[in-house]
Design a protein around this nucleic acid. Structure first.
Length: 512
RNA sequence: GCUCCGAUGGUGUAGUCCGGCCAAUCAUAUUGCCCUCUCACGGCAAUGACUUGGGUUCAAAUCCCAAUCGGAGCACCA
Protein backbone atom coordinates (compact mmCIF):
# COMPACT_ATOMS: atom_id res chain seq x y z
CA UNK A 1 0.00 0.00 0.00
CA UNK A 2 1.39 3.37 -0.88
CA UNK A 3 1.81 6.14 1.62
CA UNK A 4 -1.13 8.09 0.25
CA UNK A 5 -3.33 5.03 0.13
CA UNK A 6 -2.47 4.21 3.72
CA UNK A 7 -3.28 7.71 4.76
CA UNK A 8 -6.60 7.64 2.97
CA UNK A 9 -7.42 4.27 4.44
CA UNK A 10 -6.58 5.48 7.91
CA UNK A 11 -8.80 8.47 7.29
CA UNK A 12 -11.70 6.12 6.60
CA UNK A 13 -11.05 3.82 9.54
CA UNK A 14 -10.04 6.30 12.19
CA UNK A 15 -10.52 9.89 11.15
CA UNK A 16 -9.65 11.24 14.58
CA UNK A 17 -6.40 9.37 14.70
CA UNK A 18 -5.13 11.12 11.62
CA UNK A 19 -5.65 14.49 13.21
CA UNK A 20 -3.97 13.37 16.40
CA UNK A 21 -0.92 12.36 14.43
CA UNK A 22 -0.86 15.66 12.67
CA UNK A 23 -0.97 17.45 15.99
CA UNK A 24 1.84 15.43 17.46
CA UNK A 25 4.22 17.54 15.44
CA UNK A 26 6.40 18.06 18.41
CA UNK A 27 9.19 20.35 19.21
CA UNK A 28 11.92 18.69 21.18
CA UNK A 29 15.35 18.71 19.72
CA UNK A 30 16.93 17.72 22.97
CA UNK A 31 20.50 16.48 23.11
CA UNK A 32 19.70 13.84 25.71
CA UNK A 33 16.58 11.88 26.60
CA UNK A 34 14.46 13.04 29.53
CA UNK A 35 15.48 11.66 32.89
CA UNK A 36 12.84 9.41 34.46
CA UNK A 37 10.32 10.79 36.96
CA UNK A 38 11.87 14.21 37.13
CA UNK A 39 8.69 15.69 38.58
CA UNK A 40 8.95 13.49 41.65
CA UNK A 41 11.97 15.43 42.86
CA UNK A 42 12.48 19.01 43.97
CA UNK A 43 15.71 19.22 42.06
CA UNK A 44 17.88 16.95 40.00
CA UNK A 45 21.08 15.85 41.65
CA UNK A 46 23.48 13.44 40.05
CA UNK A 47 26.95 12.19 40.70
CA UNK A 48 30.14 11.26 39.00
CA UNK A 49 31.85 8.58 41.06
CA UNK A 50 35.29 7.87 39.64
CA UNK A 51 37.83 5.53 41.07
CA UNK A 52 40.97 7.64 41.28
CA UNK A 53 43.26 4.79 40.30
CA UNK A 54 44.50 6.82 37.36
CA UNK A 55 43.77 9.82 35.17
CA UNK A 56 40.80 9.52 32.88
CA UNK A 57 40.69 7.85 29.53
CA UNK A 58 38.25 8.96 26.89
CA UNK A 59 35.55 6.60 28.05
CA UNK A 60 35.46 8.23 31.46
CA UNK A 61 34.58 11.54 29.87
CA UNK A 62 31.17 10.17 29.00
CA UNK A 63 29.92 10.24 32.58
CA UNK A 64 31.07 13.79 33.21
CA UNK A 65 29.79 14.95 29.84
CA UNK A 66 26.34 13.47 30.29
CA UNK A 67 25.92 14.26 33.97
CA UNK A 68 27.18 17.79 33.39
CA UNK A 69 24.80 18.24 30.50
CA UNK A 70 21.85 17.00 32.57
CA UNK A 71 22.83 19.45 35.27
CA UNK A 72 22.49 22.24 32.74
CA UNK A 73 19.33 20.82 31.21
CA UNK A 74 17.51 20.61 34.53
CA UNK A 75 19.33 23.38 36.36
CA UNK A 76 20.40 20.73 38.83
CA UNK A 77 23.66 19.83 40.50
CA UNK A 78 26.17 17.03 40.68
CA UNK A 79 28.66 15.62 43.10
CA UNK A 80 32.07 14.31 42.19
CA UNK A 81 32.69 11.51 44.64
CA UNK A 82 35.94 9.61 44.57
CA UNK A 83 35.15 5.99 45.33
CA UNK A 84 38.58 5.19 46.70
CA UNK A 85 37.80 2.39 49.10
CA UNK A 86 40.23 -0.20 47.83
CA UNK A 87 43.84 0.64 48.70
CA UNK A 88 44.96 -2.70 47.30
CA UNK A 89 43.52 -3.94 44.00
CA UNK A 90 42.39 -0.57 42.71
CA UNK A 91 44.94 1.43 44.58
CA UNK A 92 44.32 5.15 44.28
CA UNK A 93 46.88 7.23 42.44
CA UNK A 94 47.39 10.40 44.44
CA UNK A 95 47.84 12.47 41.29
CA UNK A 96 44.63 11.17 39.79
CA UNK A 97 42.30 13.09 42.11
CA UNK A 98 43.38 16.40 40.67
CA UNK A 99 43.84 15.01 37.18
CA UNK A 100 40.20 13.93 37.20
CA UNK A 101 38.99 17.29 38.46
CA UNK A 102 41.07 18.91 35.72
CA UNK A 103 39.44 16.64 33.16
CA UNK A 104 35.99 17.68 34.33
CA UNK A 105 37.03 21.30 34.11
CA UNK A 106 38.37 20.71 30.60
CA UNK A 107 34.95 19.42 29.64
CA UNK A 108 33.70 22.73 31.03
CA UNK A 109 31.68 21.43 33.95
CA UNK A 110 32.01 22.12 37.61
CA UNK A 111 31.01 19.72 40.39
CA UNK A 112 28.87 21.33 43.06
CA UNK A 113 30.55 19.20 45.66
CA UNK A 114 33.69 17.07 45.75
CA UNK A 115 33.91 14.17 48.19
CA UNK A 116 36.32 11.38 48.88
CA UNK A 117 34.93 8.13 50.21
CA UNK A 118 38.14 7.64 52.14
CA UNK A 119 37.22 10.71 54.20
CA UNK A 120 33.89 9.19 55.10
CA UNK A 121 34.81 5.83 56.55
CA UNK A 122 33.43 6.70 60.00
CA UNK A 123 30.08 7.42 58.40
CA UNK A 124 30.07 4.00 56.80
CA UNK A 125 30.91 2.40 60.14
CA UNK A 126 28.01 4.19 61.78
CA UNK A 127 25.63 2.94 59.15
CA UNK A 128 27.02 -0.54 59.44
CA UNK A 129 26.26 -0.50 63.15
CA UNK A 130 22.79 0.73 62.49
CA UNK A 131 22.32 -1.98 59.91
CA UNK A 132 23.46 -4.59 62.42
CA UNK A 133 20.87 -3.25 64.86
CA UNK A 134 18.23 -3.63 62.19
CA UNK A 135 19.23 -7.27 61.77
CA UNK A 136 20.47 -6.52 58.29
CA UNK A 137 24.08 -7.57 58.56
CA UNK A 138 26.25 -10.25 60.10
CA UNK A 139 29.92 -10.94 60.53
CA UNK A 140 31.09 -13.98 58.63
CA UNK A 141 34.36 -15.85 58.78
CA UNK A 142 33.67 -18.32 55.99
CA UNK A 143 36.50 -18.74 53.52
CA UNK A 144 35.44 -17.18 50.24
CA UNK A 145 35.06 -20.38 48.33
CA UNK A 146 33.14 -22.07 51.05
CA UNK A 147 30.63 -19.27 51.24
CA UNK A 148 30.36 -19.18 47.49
CA UNK A 149 29.38 -22.84 47.41
CA UNK A 150 26.77 -22.39 50.08
CA UNK A 151 25.45 -19.29 48.37
CA UNK A 152 25.20 -20.99 45.01
CA UNK A 153 23.24 -23.78 46.68
CA UNK A 154 21.00 -21.20 48.33
CA UNK A 155 22.10 -22.29 51.81
CA UNK A 156 22.79 -19.91 54.68
CA UNK A 157 26.18 -20.12 56.32
CA UNK A 158 26.38 -20.90 60.05
CA UNK A 159 27.22 -17.26 60.88
CA UNK A 160 23.96 -15.94 59.55
CA UNK A 161 22.13 -16.62 62.78
CA UNK A 162 24.54 -14.92 65.20
CA UNK A 163 23.02 -12.64 67.79
CA UNK A 164 23.31 -8.93 67.39
CA UNK A 165 25.66 -8.47 70.29
CA UNK A 166 28.23 -10.85 68.90
CA UNK A 167 28.00 -9.25 65.49
CA UNK A 168 28.58 -5.81 66.99
CA UNK A 169 31.53 -7.13 68.91
CA UNK A 170 33.10 -8.79 65.91
CA UNK A 171 32.51 -5.82 63.67
CA UNK A 172 34.12 -3.65 66.30
CA UNK A 173 37.14 -5.90 66.16
CA UNK A 174 37.18 -5.65 62.36
CA UNK A 175 37.29 -1.88 62.67
CA UNK A 176 40.02 -2.11 65.29
CA UNK A 177 42.11 -4.18 62.92
CA UNK A 178 42.13 -7.29 65.03
CA UNK A 179 41.56 -9.61 62.10
CA UNK A 180 43.83 -10.32 59.19
CA UNK A 181 42.75 -10.12 55.57
CA UNK A 182 40.16 -12.74 54.73
CA UNK A 183 39.46 -13.69 58.31
CA UNK A 184 36.24 -11.80 58.77
CA UNK A 185 33.79 -9.83 56.67
CA UNK A 186 30.50 -8.08 57.31
CA UNK A 187 27.73 -9.29 55.05
CA UNK A 188 24.41 -7.71 54.25
CA UNK A 189 21.61 -10.14 54.94
CA UNK A 190 19.53 -10.18 51.76
CA UNK A 191 17.71 -13.30 50.62
CA UNK A 192 19.94 -16.34 50.55
CA UNK A 193 17.47 -18.09 48.26
CA UNK A 194 17.06 -15.19 45.86
CA UNK A 195 16.74 -16.57 42.37
CA UNK A 196 19.58 -14.35 41.22
CA UNK A 197 22.71 -15.66 42.91
CA UNK A 198 24.34 -12.29 42.43
CA UNK A 199 22.06 -10.77 45.04
CA UNK A 200 22.55 -13.23 47.86
CA UNK A 201 24.19 -11.94 51.08
CA UNK A 202 26.90 -9.73 49.66
CA UNK A 203 29.96 -8.41 51.44
CA UNK A 204 29.72 -4.92 52.90
CA UNK A 205 33.07 -4.62 54.69
CA UNK A 206 36.34 -6.46 54.49
CA UNK A 207 39.85 -6.14 55.85
CA UNK A 208 42.63 -4.68 53.75
CA UNK A 209 45.99 -4.46 55.44
CA UNK A 210 47.67 -2.33 52.80
CA UNK A 211 47.46 1.25 54.05
CA UNK A 212 45.53 3.73 51.98
CA UNK A 213 47.87 6.05 50.07
CA UNK A 214 46.15 9.13 51.46
CA UNK A 215 47.68 9.97 54.82
CA UNK A 216 44.26 10.98 56.14
CA UNK A 217 42.96 7.47 55.56
CA UNK A 218 46.09 5.42 56.09
CA UNK A 219 45.03 4.02 59.44
CA UNK A 220 41.86 2.28 58.32
CA UNK A 221 41.94 -1.47 57.79
CA UNK A 222 38.24 -2.20 57.59
CA UNK A 223 36.97 -0.92 54.25
CA UNK A 224 33.46 -0.87 52.79
CA UNK A 225 32.73 -2.49 49.45
CA UNK A 226 31.41 -0.36 46.62
CA UNK A 227 27.83 -1.51 46.89
CA UNK A 228 27.66 -0.50 50.54
CA UNK A 229 29.63 2.71 50.37
CA UNK A 230 28.06 3.94 47.19
CA UNK A 231 24.57 3.09 48.33
CA UNK A 232 24.99 4.98 51.59
CA UNK A 233 26.59 7.97 49.92
CA UNK A 234 24.01 8.30 47.19
CA UNK A 235 21.33 8.63 49.81
CA UNK A 236 23.30 10.88 52.13
CA UNK A 237 24.27 13.27 49.35
CA UNK A 238 20.74 13.54 48.01
CA UNK A 239 21.38 11.95 44.64
CA UNK A 240 18.15 11.64 42.67
CA UNK A 241 19.42 10.04 39.48
CA UNK A 242 22.26 7.59 39.05
CA UNK A 243 23.85 6.68 35.77
CA UNK A 244 26.13 3.71 35.78
CA UNK A 245 27.52 0.97 33.59
CA UNK A 246 25.88 -2.34 32.84
CA UNK A 247 28.60 -4.00 34.89
CA UNK A 248 26.77 -2.55 37.87
CA UNK A 249 23.33 -3.58 36.73
CA UNK A 250 22.76 -5.65 39.88
CA UNK A 251 23.98 -2.95 42.24
CA UNK A 252 20.66 -1.24 42.63
CA UNK A 253 18.99 -4.52 43.48
CA UNK A 254 21.66 -5.30 46.03
CA UNK A 255 21.58 -1.85 47.54
CA UNK A 256 17.80 -1.96 47.65
CA UNK A 257 18.08 -4.41 50.54
CA UNK A 258 20.12 -1.87 52.50
CA UNK A 259 17.70 0.90 51.59
CA UNK A 260 14.83 -1.24 52.78
CA UNK A 261 16.47 -1.77 56.16
CA UNK A 262 16.91 1.97 56.51
CA UNK A 263 13.55 2.87 55.03
CA UNK A 264 15.11 4.93 52.25
CA UNK A 265 13.85 5.53 48.73
CA UNK A 266 16.20 4.35 46.05
CA UNK A 267 17.17 6.94 43.40
CA UNK A 268 16.30 6.53 39.73
CA UNK A 269 18.85 4.41 37.92
CA UNK A 270 19.96 4.33 34.31
CA UNK A 271 22.41 1.77 33.02
CA UNK A 272 24.46 2.19 29.92
CA UNK A 273 26.86 0.02 27.98
CA UNK A 274 30.56 0.34 27.57
CA UNK A 275 32.17 2.69 25.09
CA UNK A 276 34.86 1.66 22.69
CA UNK A 277 36.80 4.23 20.76
CA UNK A 278 38.17 3.49 17.33
CA UNK A 279 41.41 5.01 16.03
CA UNK A 280 43.67 3.85 18.84
CA UNK A 281 46.14 0.98 18.99
CA UNK A 282 46.26 1.25 22.75
CA UNK A 283 43.43 -0.41 24.70
CA UNK A 284 41.28 1.97 26.67
CA UNK A 285 42.03 0.67 30.12
CA UNK A 286 43.53 2.59 32.99
CA UNK A 287 45.75 -0.27 34.04
CA UNK A 288 47.00 -0.97 30.52
CA UNK A 289 47.82 2.67 29.86
CA UNK A 290 49.54 2.91 33.21
CA UNK A 291 51.60 -0.16 32.36
CA UNK A 292 52.59 1.22 28.96
CA UNK A 293 53.72 4.44 30.60
CA UNK A 294 55.71 2.56 33.22
CA UNK A 295 57.33 0.49 30.47
CA UNK A 296 58.25 3.63 28.57
CA UNK A 297 56.07 2.71 25.59
CA UNK A 298 54.13 5.92 26.12
CA UNK A 299 55.62 9.20 27.29
CA UNK A 300 52.87 9.87 29.78
CA UNK A 301 49.14 10.22 30.19
CA UNK A 302 49.13 13.00 27.61
CA UNK A 303 51.07 11.10 24.97
CA UNK A 304 49.21 11.66 21.68
CA UNK A 305 49.00 7.91 21.20
CA UNK A 306 47.20 7.44 24.51
CA UNK A 307 43.39 7.37 24.45
CA UNK A 308 43.19 9.77 27.38
CA UNK A 309 41.57 13.08 28.14
CA UNK A 310 44.96 14.62 28.81
CA UNK A 311 46.07 13.55 25.35
CA UNK A 312 43.04 15.06 23.63
CA UNK A 313 43.60 18.29 25.48
CA UNK A 314 47.24 18.44 24.51
CA UNK A 315 46.29 17.85 20.91
CA UNK A 316 44.17 20.95 21.02
CA UNK A 317 40.78 19.29 20.95
CA UNK A 318 38.16 21.33 22.75
CA UNK A 319 36.30 19.77 25.62
CA UNK A 320 33.11 20.87 23.94
CA UNK A 321 33.84 18.61 20.95
CA UNK A 322 34.18 15.67 23.31
CA UNK A 323 31.02 16.54 25.22
CA UNK A 324 29.00 16.83 22.02
CA UNK A 325 30.22 13.46 20.82
CA UNK A 326 29.49 11.85 24.17
CA UNK A 327 25.98 13.20 24.53
CA UNK A 328 25.39 12.06 20.96
CA UNK A 329 25.99 8.50 22.08
CA UNK A 330 22.85 8.65 24.16
CA UNK A 331 22.13 6.33 27.06
CA UNK A 332 21.80 3.00 25.30
CA UNK A 333 22.26 -0.12 27.41
CA UNK A 334 24.19 -1.81 24.66
CA UNK A 335 27.85 -1.23 24.07
CA UNK A 336 28.70 1.55 21.67
CA UNK A 337 31.62 2.49 19.48
CA UNK A 338 32.60 6.10 19.48
CA UNK A 339 34.11 7.12 16.16
CA UNK A 340 36.88 9.63 16.75
CA UNK A 341 35.91 11.16 13.43
CA UNK A 342 32.80 12.46 15.20
CA UNK A 343 34.94 14.21 17.79
CA UNK A 344 37.14 15.55 15.01
CA UNK A 345 34.19 16.82 13.01
CA UNK A 346 32.80 18.57 16.09
CA UNK A 347 36.15 20.11 16.86
CA UNK A 348 36.82 21.21 13.31
CA UNK A 349 33.58 23.09 13.39
CA UNK A 350 34.71 24.86 16.55
CA UNK A 351 38.20 25.84 15.44
CA UNK A 352 38.33 26.08 11.66
CA UNK A 353 37.22 29.68 11.28
CA UNK A 354 39.57 31.09 13.86
CA UNK A 355 42.66 29.02 13.10
CA UNK A 356 45.45 30.55 11.05
CA UNK A 357 47.05 28.71 8.17
CA UNK A 358 50.71 27.78 7.70
CA UNK A 359 52.85 25.46 5.63
CA UNK A 360 54.63 22.37 6.82
CA UNK A 361 56.66 20.22 4.45
CA UNK A 362 56.89 16.76 5.90
CA UNK A 363 60.23 15.11 5.77
CA UNK A 364 58.56 11.74 6.05
CA UNK A 365 57.11 12.50 2.64
CA UNK A 366 60.72 13.10 1.68
CA UNK A 367 61.04 16.78 1.17
CA UNK A 368 63.00 17.72 -1.92
CA UNK A 369 64.92 20.93 -2.34
CA UNK A 370 64.71 22.90 -5.56
CA UNK A 371 66.29 26.19 -6.43
CA UNK A 372 63.86 28.74 -7.78
CA UNK A 373 64.92 30.61 -10.88
CA UNK A 374 63.78 34.10 -11.85
CA UNK A 375 60.89 34.27 -9.41
CA UNK A 376 59.72 36.88 -6.88
CA UNK A 377 61.53 37.13 -3.57
CA UNK A 378 58.67 35.95 -1.43
CA UNK A 379 55.26 34.28 -1.40
CA UNK A 380 52.21 35.73 0.30
CA UNK A 381 49.58 33.13 1.08
CA UNK A 382 46.53 34.20 3.07
CA UNK A 383 46.41 33.87 6.82
CA UNK A 384 42.91 32.46 6.44
CA UNK A 385 41.23 31.83 3.10
CA UNK A 386 37.79 32.83 4.32
CA UNK A 387 38.95 36.03 6.01
CA UNK A 388 40.84 38.36 3.75
CA UNK A 389 40.95 40.98 6.50
CA UNK A 390 43.42 38.88 8.45
CA UNK A 391 46.00 39.62 5.78
CA UNK A 392 48.67 37.43 4.32
CA UNK A 393 51.86 35.77 5.42
CA UNK A 394 55.24 36.60 3.95
CA UNK A 395 57.44 33.65 3.14
CA UNK A 396 60.87 34.49 1.68
CA UNK A 397 62.17 32.30 -1.11
CA UNK A 398 65.77 33.43 -1.55
CA UNK A 399 67.68 30.46 -2.95
CA UNK A 400 64.98 27.82 -3.20
CA UNK A 401 62.14 25.87 -1.68
CA UNK A 402 61.30 22.49 -0.21
CA UNK A 403 58.28 20.56 -1.35
CA UNK A 404 57.08 17.08 -0.53
CA UNK A 405 58.21 14.42 -2.95
CA UNK A 406 54.67 13.47 -3.76
CA UNK A 407 53.98 17.02 -4.87
CA UNK A 408 57.01 17.24 -7.17
CA UNK A 409 55.83 17.24 -10.79
CA UNK A 410 57.76 15.27 -13.43
CA UNK A 411 60.54 17.19 -15.12
CA UNK A 412 59.04 19.50 -17.71
CA UNK A 413 55.74 19.91 -15.83
CA UNK A 414 54.47 22.80 -13.79
CA UNK A 415 53.27 23.12 -10.23
CA UNK A 416 51.72 26.06 -8.42
CA UNK A 417 53.48 27.02 -5.22
CA UNK A 418 50.57 28.26 -3.15
CA UNK A 419 50.72 31.98 -2.46
CA UNK A 420 53.77 32.33 -4.68
CA UNK A 421 53.19 31.38 -8.29
CA UNK A 422 53.68 28.86 -11.00
CA UNK A 423 57.03 27.15 -11.60
CA UNK A 424 58.21 24.57 -14.09
CA UNK A 425 60.30 21.64 -12.90
CA UNK A 426 63.47 21.57 -15.01
CA UNK A 427 66.89 20.01 -14.68
CA UNK A 428 68.05 23.25 -13.08
CA UNK A 429 65.27 23.48 -10.49
CA UNK A 430 61.99 25.37 -10.49
CA UNK A 431 61.80 27.99 -13.24
CA UNK A 432 59.25 30.68 -12.54
CA UNK A 433 56.76 30.82 -15.41
CA UNK A 434 54.66 33.85 -14.59
CA UNK A 435 51.50 31.94 -15.50
CA UNK A 436 48.17 33.23 -14.32
CA UNK A 437 46.28 31.41 -11.61
CA UNK A 438 43.87 30.21 -14.29
CA UNK A 439 46.32 27.44 -15.18
CA UNK A 440 45.43 25.69 -11.93
CA UNK A 441 41.84 25.40 -13.07
CA UNK A 442 42.12 25.27 -16.83
CA UNK A 443 45.29 23.29 -17.28
CA UNK A 444 45.25 21.15 -14.18
CA UNK A 445 48.37 22.54 -12.54
CA UNK A 446 48.36 21.34 -8.93
CA UNK A 447 48.58 23.75 -6.03
CA UNK A 448 51.02 22.64 -3.37
CA UNK A 449 52.47 23.90 -0.12
CA UNK A 450 56.16 24.66 0.29
CA UNK A 451 58.73 26.26 2.60
CA UNK A 452 61.98 28.12 1.99
CA UNK A 453 64.93 25.77 1.79
CA UNK A 454 67.03 27.98 4.08
CA UNK A 455 64.76 29.94 6.32
CA UNK A 456 62.50 27.30 7.78
CA UNK A 457 61.77 25.87 11.20
CA UNK A 458 62.39 22.29 12.23
CA UNK A 459 59.20 20.76 13.50
CA UNK A 460 58.45 17.58 15.33
CA UNK A 461 54.81 16.75 14.83
CA UNK A 462 53.49 14.30 17.37
CA UNK A 463 50.58 12.24 16.07
CA UNK A 464 48.41 9.39 17.22
CA UNK A 465 50.49 7.14 14.96
CA UNK A 466 53.88 8.36 16.05
CA UNK A 467 56.10 11.34 15.40
CA UNK A 468 56.70 13.05 12.07
CA UNK A 469 59.46 15.53 11.35
CA UNK A 470 59.24 18.37 8.90
CA UNK A 471 59.97 21.98 8.10
CA UNK A 472 57.59 24.86 8.66
CA UNK A 473 57.55 28.35 7.27
CA UNK A 474 59.42 30.88 9.43
CA UNK A 475 56.33 32.80 10.48
CA UNK A 476 55.37 29.94 12.74
CA UNK A 477 57.79 31.36 15.30
CA UNK A 478 55.39 34.23 15.91
CA UNK A 479 52.95 31.86 17.58
CA UNK A 480 52.98 30.74 21.18
CA UNK A 481 52.55 27.39 22.84
CA UNK A 482 48.88 26.43 23.00
CA UNK A 483 48.07 28.28 19.75
CA UNK A 484 46.33 26.29 17.06
CA UNK A 485 47.33 26.26 13.42
CA UNK A 486 46.26 24.46 10.33
CA UNK A 487 49.14 23.16 8.28
CA UNK A 488 47.52 23.38 4.88
CA UNK A 489 46.92 20.05 3.22
CA UNK A 490 48.23 18.30 6.36
CA UNK A 491 45.87 19.09 9.19
CA UNK A 492 45.28 21.04 12.37
CA UNK A 493 47.89 21.14 15.09
CA UNK A 494 48.40 22.65 18.50
CA UNK A 495 51.76 24.24 19.13
CA UNK A 496 53.23 22.62 22.18
CA UNK A 497 56.64 24.24 22.57
CA UNK A 498 58.87 26.61 20.66
CA UNK A 499 62.27 25.55 19.37
CA UNK A 500 65.17 25.26 21.78
CA UNK A 501 68.83 24.71 21.16
CA UNK A 502 68.36 20.97 21.13
CA UNK A 503 64.99 20.47 19.51
CA UNK A 504 62.81 22.04 16.91
CA UNK A 505 59.31 23.30 17.44
CA UNK A 506 57.01 20.63 18.82
CA UNK A 507 53.43 20.48 17.63
CA UNK A 508 50.67 17.99 18.39
CA UNK A 509 48.52 16.81 15.54
CA UNK A 510 44.87 17.54 16.25
CA UNK A 511 43.09 15.97 13.29
CA UNK A 512 42.90 16.41 9.52
C1' G B 1 25.34 -23.79 35.45
C1' C B 2 22.06 -19.71 37.66
C1' U B 3 20.34 -14.62 36.80
C1' C B 4 19.77 -10.02 34.19
C1' C B 5 19.92 -7.01 29.70
C1' G B 6 20.17 -5.68 24.63
C1' A B 7 19.70 -5.89 18.85
C1' U B 8 17.70 0.38 13.34
C1' G B 9 23.15 1.73 7.50
C1' G B 10 30.56 1.47 8.43
C1' U B 11 29.65 4.41 13.30
C1' G B 12 26.20 6.97 16.57
C1' U B 13 21.21 8.28 16.88
C1' A B 14 15.52 9.47 16.19
C1' G B 15 11.19 6.63 15.95
C1' U B 16 9.38 1.62 19.96
C1' C B 17 6.30 3.27 25.92
C1' C B 18 0.62 4.83 23.48
C1' G B 19 0.84 0.11 16.12
C1' G B 20 -1.13 4.25 11.42
C1' C B 21 1.53 11.18 8.46
C1' C B 22 8.05 5.26 8.59
C1' A B 23 8.15 5.18 1.35
C1' A B 24 12.51 5.12 8.61
C1' U B 25 15.25 11.08 11.16
C1' C B 26 19.64 13.62 11.87
C1' A B 27 24.85 13.53 12.33
C1' U B 28 29.28 11.25 11.04
C1' A B 29 31.73 8.28 7.27
C1' U B 30 32.74 7.06 2.19
C1' U B 31 32.29 8.47 -3.06
C1' G B 32 31.23 11.98 -6.93
C1' C B 33 30.25 17.02 -8.59
C1' C B 34 30.44 22.45 -7.53
C1' C B 35 33.19 26.38 -4.97
C1' U B 36 38.20 27.40 -3.60
C1' C B 37 45.44 29.63 -4.58
C1' U B 38 44.57 23.47 1.10
C1' C B 39 43.05 17.26 0.69
C1' A B 40 40.14 22.78 5.42
C1' C B 41 35.41 25.43 5.26
C1' G B 42 30.88 25.88 2.37
C1' G B 43 27.09 23.87 -1.35
C1' C B 44 24.78 19.68 -4.02
C1' A B 45 24.15 14.54 -4.85
C1' A B 46 24.90 9.36 -4.22
C1' U B 47 25.84 5.09 -0.96
C1' G B 48 23.84 2.56 3.09
C1' A B 49 19.66 -0.10 8.30
C1' C B 50 14.57 -1.98 11.13
C1' U B 51 18.84 -9.75 13.31
C1' U B 52 15.67 -14.15 11.77
C1' G B 53 11.07 -16.92 11.96
C1' G B 54 6.23 -17.21 13.55
C1' G B 55 1.76 -14.78 15.72
C1' U B 56 -1.98 -10.63 16.67
C1' U B 57 -4.04 -6.70 13.35
C1' C B 58 -7.35 -3.48 8.18
C1' A B 59 -2.20 -1.88 9.46
C1' A B 60 4.03 -4.01 12.89
C1' A B 61 10.66 -1.01 13.30
C1' U B 62 6.78 -0.47 17.12
C1' C B 63 2.72 -5.47 20.54
C1' C B 64 3.34 -11.16 21.69
C1' C B 65 6.27 -15.84 21.26
C1' A B 66 10.57 -18.37 19.76
C1' A B 67 15.34 -18.67 17.72
C1' U B 68 20.01 -16.45 16.68
C1' C B 69 23.69 -13.18 17.93
C1' G B 70 25.82 -10.00 21.46
C1' G B 71 26.69 -7.87 26.44
C1' A B 72 26.74 -8.16 31.88
C1' G B 73 26.58 -10.16 36.97
C1' C B 74 27.01 -14.56 40.27
C1' A B 75 34.64 -10.97 43.91
C1' C B 76 36.81 -10.12 50.66
C1' C B 77 37.50 -4.93 42.42
C1' A B 78 35.45 -0.40 41.24
Amino acid sequence: MSHTERRERLGELAPGRLEELDEEEEDDDQVLPDLPNVDDYDGIRMRVAPNPNGPWHIGHARMAAVVGTYKELYDGSFVCRFDDTDPETKRPDLDAYDAILDAIEYLDFEPDEVLKASDRVETYYEHAQELIDEGGAYTCSCPGEEFSNLKNAGEPCPHRGKDTEQIHEEFERMVDGEYGEGEMVLRVKTDIEHKNPALRDFVAFRIIETPHPRAEAADYRCWPMLDFQSGIDDHLTGVTHIIRGIDLQDSAKRQQFVYDYFGWEYPEVIHWGHVQVDAYDVPMSTSTIKQLIDDGELDGWDDPRAPTIASLRRRGIRGQAVVDAMTGLGLSTSNVDLAMSTVYANNRELIDEETDRAFLVRDDERAVEKSVIDGPEAGHPAVHPNHEDRGSREIPVETGVLVELGDLPPVGERVWLKGYGCVRHTDDGFEYTGDDLDVTREEGVDIVHWVPSDDNVDVRLRTIDGDISGYAEPGILDYDPDDLLQFERVGFVRIDSLPTEETGLVAYFTHP
